[in-house]
Amino acid sequence: MGEQKNKSGQNWSTLSKAQWMQRLTPAQFHVLREHGTERAFSGPFWDSFQPGRYFCVGCGNALFDSDSKFDAGCGWPSFFQAVHEGAVREYEDRSHMMVRTEIRCGACDGHLGHVFDDGPPPTGLRYCLNGTAMRFEPATD
């Protein structure tokens, strides 16, 4: 992975574990930096459908718009497409004795969740995210 910098020039890949722990709550750190997963129906945003945009809680990178969010019935926020190409990155995940596609933030490489091919049109994808890994900004009219 190449250098990923924020608007102020911070290189996300150089942050230490201690620096990430200062930036994030323990739950956010567990999900984003330790590849954890919140329990279904327990995290934020799984049942919220307010218009707006979702951002990485670790670095502020725009991830998903609410118009691509849908109720997958799985207990995690689900989307059928990212806000733009490069917003998220995909990695093969062979943990827990299965093969899945992990989704990480395209800017800070934080673990967000997984993507599956059982979503609705037009993409057929279901980006299944940990709500703990995101923050939400409501749309303004």
Results as ranks from 00 to 15, higher is better:
residue 79 F to P: 04
residue 29 F to T: 00
residue 45 F to I: 03
residue 87 A to H: 03
residue 109 D to I: 10
residue 116 F to V: 06
residue 82 A to T: 04
residue 102 E to L: 06
residue 108 C to H: 10
residue 60 G to Q: 09
residue 63 L to W: 08
residue 82 A to K: 04
residue 97 M to R: 14
residue 67 D to A: 12
residue 132 T to R: 00
residue 79 F to D: 07
residue 107 A to R: 15
residue 113 G to K: 02
residue 82 A to W: 00
residue 33 R to D: 04
residue 88 V to A: 02
residue 66 S to D: 04
residue 88 V to S: 04
residue 67 D to E: 15
residue 41 F to M: 01
residue 37 T to A: 03
residue 114 H to R: 05
residue 26 P to H: 07
residue 15 L to A: 07
residue 2 G to H: 11
residue 58 G to F: 03
residue 101 T to N: 06
residue 49 F to Y: 14
residue 122 P to Q: 07
residue 99 V to G: 10
residue 41 F to Q: 06
residue 81 Q to M: 08
residue 7 K to M: 11
residue 127 Y to L: 08
residue 106 G to R: 00
residue 70 F to T: 07
residue 27 A to E: 15
residue 36 G to P: 05
residue 77 P to G: 11
residue 97 M to F: 14
residue 93 D to I: 01
residue 8 S to L: 15
residue 15 L to Y: 09
residue 12 W to T: 14
residue 23 R to T: 03
residue 55 F to K: 11
residue 113 G to F: 03
residue 109 D to Y: 11
residue 76 W to V: 02
residue 28 Q to P: 00
residue 92 E to Y: 00
residue 100 R to A: 09
residue 30 H to M: 08
residue 106 G to V: 03
residue 54 Y to P: 08
residue 9 G to Y: 13
residue 76 W to H: 05
residue 101 T to C: 08
residue 137 E to W: 03
residue 38 E to C: 08
residue 122 P to M: 07
residue 137 E to S: 14
residue 77 P to N: 09
residue 23 R to N: 10
residue 74 C to E: 02
residue 35 H to A: 14
residue 111 H to N: 04
residue 16 S to A: 08
residue 91 Y to K: 13
residue 31 V to F: 01
residue 108 C to P: 05
residue 74 C to R: 09
residue 91 Y to T: 03
residue 24 L to G: 02
residue 124 G to Q: 03
residue 95 S to P: 09
residue 119 G to K: 00
residue 24 L to T: 01
residue 102 E to I: 04
residue 73 G to N: 13
residue 3 E to F: 11
residue 133 A to N: 10
residue 48 S to A: 12
residue 12 W to P: 08
residue 19 Q to N: 07
residue 104 R to A: 14
residue 58 G to P: 01
residue 135 R to H: 13
residue 82 A to R: 01
residue 123 T to C: 10
residue 108 C to D: 01
residue 91 Y to Q: 12
residue 110 G to N: 07
residue 140 T to I: 11
residue 16 S to H: 06
residue 28 Q to A: 11
residue 58 G to K: 02
residue 59 C to Q: 11
residue 25 T to G: 10
residue 92 E to D: 14
residue 78 S to A: 15
residue 109 D to N: 15
residue 5 K to V: 11
residue 106 G to D: 04
residue 7 K to A: 15
residue 10 Q to I: 15
residue 72 A to Q: 05
residue 9 G to W: 12
residue 28 Q to D: 02
residue 20 W to N: 12
residue 113 G to M: 06
residue 54 Y to M: 08
residue 55 F to G: 11
residue 130 N to H: 09
residue 79 F to L: 05
residue 17 K to P: 08
residue 8 S to C: 12
residue 133 A to Q: 10
residue 58 G to M: 02
residue 72 A to L: 05
residue 15 L to N: 05
residue 78 S to T: 13
residue 63 L to D: 11
residue 21 M to D: 09
residue 28 Q to L: 02
residue 10 Q to R: 15
residue 105 C to W: 06
residue 75 G to T: 10
residue 90 E to Y: 13
residue 37 T to Y: 00
residue 110 G to L: 07
residue 89 R to V: 10
residue 21 M to E: 15
residue 137 E to H: 12
residue 30 H to Y: 12
residue 121 P to A: 14
residue 20 W to F: 12
residue 15 L to Q: 04
residue 65 D to P: 03
residue 141 D to R: 13
residue 75 G to R: 09
residue 85 E to L: 07
residue 27 A to N: 13
residue 19 Q to K: 09
residue 57 V to G: 15
residue 110 G to Q: 05
